[in-house]
Computed example of a mutant assay.
Amino acid sequence: MISPSPSTRIYLACGATDMRKGFNGLAVMAQQVLHKNPHSGALFAFRGKRGDLVKLLWYDGQGMCLFSKRMDRGKFVWPVTKTGKVHLSSAQLSMLLEGIDWRRPERTDASLLAG
């Protein structure tokens, strides 16, 4: 179970990543592409070319953790940027992992629903 603190920095590596990469290959990407220390406690997210597989790399203080999720239907919403990385909040990461478009979440107005 992933349980990073609310202050954990979350980075998405934009574009497609070779999903054959494991701990070491993704840690190198965090260093060379995202310019971040993979042992910093930040969480790094990578998406495959087809868009249905995501891998999360996270150092929890004791060791490196690698989590993956494959969507049965649909694709993970992933940005395209010039910088090659995007910073997310933990709420946005939760939406992303559920297949929700985290870039444009819509809030409902409770007063309209009560009517």
Score class of each variant (00 low, 15 high):
residue 113 L to M: 14
residue 16 A to V: 05
residue 57 L to G: 02
residue 106 E to P: 06
residue 114 A to V: 12
residue 58 W to V: 13
residue 70 R to N: 09
residue 26 L to W: 09
residue 20 R to P: 13
residue 90 S to Q: 08
residue 23 F to Q: 13
residue 114 A to N: 10
residue 105 P to C: 09
residue 43 L to Q: 00
residue 32 Q to T: 15
residue 105 P to Q: 06
residue 56 L to S: 00
residue 79 P to E: 06
residue 64 M to W: 06
residue 82 K to R: 02
residue 46 F to A: 13
residue 100 I to E: 04
residue 98 E to P: 05
residue 103 R to D: 09
residue 5 S to R: 13
residue 101 D to S: 00
residue 52 D to W: 00
residue 23 F to S: 08
residue 93 L to M: 15
residue 72 D to Q: 07
residue 34 L to G: 01
residue 43 L to E: 01
residue 108 T to F: 06
residue 31 Q to N: 14
residue 54 V to K: 10
residue 25 G to F: 14
residue 115 G to Q: 13
residue 92 Q to M: 04
residue 82 K to F: 02
residue 28 V to G: 13
residue 17 T to Q: 08
residue 87 H to I: 08
residue 115 G to A: 12
residue 115 G to C: 12
residue 79 P to Q: 10
residue 3 S to L: 12
residue 63 G to L: 03
residue 22 G to T: 07
residue 101 D to F: 01
residue 33 V to E: 15
residue 86 V to P: 02
residue 80 V to M: 08
residue 41 G to Q: 03
residue 93 L to Y: 07
residue 65 C to I: 14
residue 5 S to W: 08
residue 92 Q to N: 02
residue 113 L to D: 13
residue 82 K to E: 09
residue 45 A to I: 13
residue 115 G to N: 12
residue 53 L to N: 10
residue 89 S to I: 11
residue 95 M to C: 14
residue 28 V to T: 15
residue 108 T to W: 03
residue 55 K to S: 02
residue 41 G to K: 01
residue 26 L to C: 13
residue 45 A to R: 02
residue 84 G to C: 05
residue 73 R to K: 15
residue 75 K to C: 05
residue 94 S to L: 12
residue 17 T to N: 04
residue 51 G to W: 00
residue 61 G to M: 12
residue 4 P to S: 09
residue 40 S to V: 05
residue 41 G to H: 07
residue 55 K to W: 00
residue 19 M to W: 10
residue 107 R to T: 12
residue 70 R to G: 09
residue 48 G to C: 04
residue 6 P to W: 09
residue 90 S to F: 01
residue 74 G to Q: 12
residue 80 V to H: 09
residue 112 L to D: 12
residue 78 W to E: 00
residue 44 F to W: 06
residue 110 A to P: 11
residue 2 I to N: 10
residue 35 H to V: 15
residue 88 L to G: 02
residue 20 R to F: 11
residue 44 F to H: 09
residue 37 N to M: 11
residue 101 D to L: 03
residue 55 K to L: 01
residue 115 G to K: 14
residue 103 R to V: 10
residue 2 I to P: 08
residue 3 S to R: 11
residue 88 L to N: 02
